[in-house]
Design a protein around this nucleic acid. Structure first.
Length: 547
RNA sequence: GCGCCCAUAGCUCAAUUGGAUAGAGCGUUUGGCUACGGACCAAAAGGUUGGGGGUUCGAGUCCUCCUGGGCGCACCA
């Protein structure tokens, strides 16, 4: 049981034992914004005052007086102004937490909250019609961080990439590749145009196709060969880019594998539930019954299934595969899909809240304060690979994870390139490297082993205490970030942790002639290093021991 | 026109999901190492949270209207 649960229990039973309320509200604990307000506080008396129409201060005082906590957890309880109960943690609980960090190591911050529940995060899922661009880089960073977070709190989470290797866009891709191939061998017809995908990358792919193969494909007179080849080549390079970025998917699911059987099955399912109807020769899904603004087409009047129907089939497989919850990361231009997918989930028989959509906000690349213009149509855009080559995977990921996921993001390349104190990534990594360096120094002095058995009661300065308080909150930050799917909380936490360490380091020398003090401070520094590493690991960012 | 998202210090962003005096970094000004990493630390200045109204003990956060920006509103994916 964590320290918060212990406090919660103490307050809850105080509310009951004093007879303030038989069935009190959930005791919400918060970290006060200001240090003067203690280490932890609760506004529960304010909530109670509202319900009971009594004076909140009085209630708070009653709770404060009768609350019992295990020894060495709470040092002081104070009731202030409107009715807050502010508490100060005892040194013992902070010390015990440092030992906990050492004991658990990489597992500190992990929990079994999710009970091994099987869930899935689908992200990136960009069409294999070109290289990944920067918005996909953001989705990749966010998606993989969410998977890491869910695993950390005990969910059996998987990351999946849905490959749209079917349909009109792929056919258009085939045509464009065919153009590049004919261009290369000088076989272009008069007035022939490249079509939808004019980017140079198809030239590269065309350049690797042998003339024999081309002759064979031309004999079949089918763009399908070109399309299949292009999609496979592009998917291969997308996978390579993701590998370079350090983002690993558990599965790549191809849309083509849904056709035709599963797509047909999905259509039948909607039919059988009575939500489909024919209109103008096309089969429609009455998604308006579930709050969508208009009904959506499932089968076009030419007999071909829409993307939406395939997507229903895809989510049908997710349900069949036993995920109790699926989280889809959607591009900023796809937020309109949410209502129809919710409708689909209902008709598929999924439980409430089974389908969850997160919209990843736009990314605007900046060079200082000058936006970089990009046009996908003209084939001019900065790819994810170019971004990684420019600033490195760690910086790229960290920048994407600093902002709330659904908010638009300005990515300043000029700042990202800087290896200096202006760059927030290095600030955090520097703290880790600095501690690693100190431990090396301590080892030379033979002080390293002392850290393990340190008597932490000898440290008591404000800087040390602030650091310990921040460390004790880490598991709750992980939990909150996971449950709210907000990985950016981790970057905020990491920055604060690094800052508190730097303050401590600046104020106190760790390795001194005083062995007791040295080993105690070393134990604290090493615990900090461990938590920095755990945090960065969830973000998918390296924690270098030197830089 | 309808719907969704965004708007917080000069810039980039936080704000424990309705809590206390809205906080950091960068930039600006000023100061700080003869010992463990100066990619660091400290101090100052910087705000009508886009605007009006409402809900209540309490609003950046919730409801409403308005302004400005982005994106959707295909028998495309």
């Amino acid at each position: 049981m964590g320290f918060q649960e212990v406090i919660q229990k103490g307050i809850t039973s105080a509310i009951k034992s004093t007879g303030i309320a038989v069935d009190g509200p959930e005791v919400i604990l918060e970290k006060p914004r200001m240090k003067e307000h203690g280490d932890i506080c609760t506004p529960v008396a304010l909530t109670l005052a509202k319900a009971l129409k009594k004076n909140p201060i009085g209630i708070a005082e009653q709770i404060a007086e009768s609350a019992n906590f295990p020894p060495d957890t709470i040092a002081s309880v104070e009731v202030v102004k409107p009715g807050f109960i502010n508490m100060r943690l005892a040194h013992g609980v902070l010390v015990e937490n440092i030992r906990e960090v050492h004991r658990l190591g990489d597992d500190y911050g992990r929990s079994g909250l999710g009970n091994g529940e099987k869930c899935q995060v689908e992200y990136v899922s960009a069409n294999p019609t070109g290289p990944l661009v920067v918005v996909s880089a953001r989705a990749a960073a966010v998606g993989s961080a969410i998977v890491n977070l869910l695993r950390a709190v005990g969910f059996d989470a998987e990351g999946e990439y849905y490959v749209n290797d079917f349909g009109n866009q792929i056919e258009a891709l085939g045509k464009s590749l065919r153009f590049r191939v004919k261009e290369r061998f000088g076989r272009l017809d008069n007035g022939e145009e490249i079509g939808a995908y004019p980017g140079d990358y198809l030239k590269t792919i065309a350049g690797r196709i042998s003339e024999d193969l081309v002759t064979e494909w031309e004999r079949e007179n089918s763009v399908a060969r070109y399309a299949e080849h292009a999609a496979n080549e592009l998917l291969r390079s997308i996978k390579a880019d993701l590998e370079l970025y350090g983002v690993h998917f558990d599965n790549f699911f191809r849309e083509s594998s849904l056709h035709p059987a599963l797509v047909e099955k999905a259509r039948t399912l909607v039919d059988d539930k009575g939500y489909s109807y024919l209109h103008d020769g096309a089969l429609h899904f009455r998604t308006t019954d579930f709050g969508d603004e208009k009904d959506r087409v499932l089968v076009k009047s030419d007999g071909n299934p829409t993307y939406f129907l395939a997507d229903i089939a895809y989510h049908m497989t997710k349900l069949e595969r036993g995920y109790t919850r699926v989280i889809d990361l959607l591009g900023p231009d796809h937020h309109g899909h949410i209502p129809r997918m919710q409708a689909a989930a209902k008709v598929l028989g999924a439980p409430d809240n089974w389908f969850e959509a997160i919209v990843v906000g736009w990314v605007r690349l900046m060079e200082g304060n000058k936006p970089i213009s990009m046009s996908k149509r003209a084939g001019e855009f900065i790819t994810m690979r170019e971004l990684i080559n420019d600033v490195g995977p760690d910086v790229a990921k960290y920048f994407f994870l600093m902002r709330r996921t659904n908010a638009p993001l300005d990515f300043d390349l000029e700042l990202a390139r800087k290896q200096s104190d202006e760059n927030p990534v290095y600030y955090v990594q520097y703290a880790h490297a600095r501690i690693a360096s100190v431990t090396r120094f301590a080892a030379e002095r033979g002080a390293a082993r002392l850290g393990q058995k340190a008597n932490l009661s000898v440290i008591s300065s404000p800087e040390e205490r602030d650091l310990m308080v921040h460390l004790i909150y880490y598991p709750y930050v992980v939990e909150g970030a996971a449950l709210s799917r907000e990985p950016h909380r981790l970057t905020v936490y990491a920055k604060e942790l690094a800052s508190l360490f730097h303050q401590f380091y600046h104020q106190h020398r760790i390795v001194t002639g005083d062995q007791d003090l040295s080993s105690a401070r070393l134990a604290l520094a090493e615990a900090t290093m461990q938590v920095v590493r755990n945090t960065l690991s969830l973000l998918g960012v390296n924690a270098p021991r030197s830089m």
